[in-house]
Amino acid sequence: MKTLPNLLSLLVLCAGSAEANAESAWRLGLALGAGERTNPLIESKRLPIAVDVDVAWFGERFFFDNGDLGFTVLDRPSGTLNLVARVNSDRVFFGRTNTKFVNVSVTGASLPAPVELRVPERSWAIEVGAEWLADGDWGALALAAHRDASGTHGGHSADAEYSYTFRGRRWSLEPGISAHYKSAALGDYYWGVRPGEASTALPPYTAGAGVNWEASLRASWYLSRHWRLAASAHYERLNAAVADSPLTKDRAVKSWFAGIAWRY
């Protein structure tokens, strides 16, 4: 039981002794609770979410935000333009998979003999791009475009996100909506089935481009400046090219989390 307070003390020490209302360059957060994210990939398990770690550092120009590296090109009252290098998020679904023998193909056809159904290996991709952030009384908007820089999938993507925050004396509620475009090369690398990977249980498939739509809701009840009760829910509808792939078993990715969160 002493581990959590000790860990928080260590994180605070790392962040430095900033003045009460001054903003530290570091943003450290830890949320503990219960939650999960569904995995649309066949022969995969749901992704449990018990801990959400938030580590970010913001310098004058450079920043690190939970794995994203950025450089601020412009920062104006109208908006902020950043160059960003990030890791593609599709690969995470391929981390918890099983291999098993099936006598029914993914299309539902009976097979004469049990066949090994193995989910193909996929690699992480490093993407670089630019993002535009703007906000005001009307809410917050983020527009981003990224391209593969690691030679993994050779594709590109574009994201548009909008959110608005309602707040009360102790709470905030932030609904959001976003659209995620994925090019054919990106979609096909992760969700296509190449001839060498195909079997009688897993037919070959070429995925095209498409747009995923996502709705989210984040709620917080603030206990103090650093502590809050937090809950969130996300629903992302996969584009048809991905949803029709023999590698997917679900049409959407759903996630939720509820717990207590600490942020410094």
Binding site: D52, D54, F63, D68, S89, V92, L133, A140
Partner: peptide, 20 residues
């Protein structure tokens, strides 16, 4: 303050574990 004057702190991280 719910929102920082530094817009970068409002970025929604794309990694799958970030649910808050």
């Amino acid at each position: 303050y719910l929102r920082s004057e530094d817009r970068r702190r409002q970025r929604r991280s794309r990694h799958v574990w970030d649910v808050l």
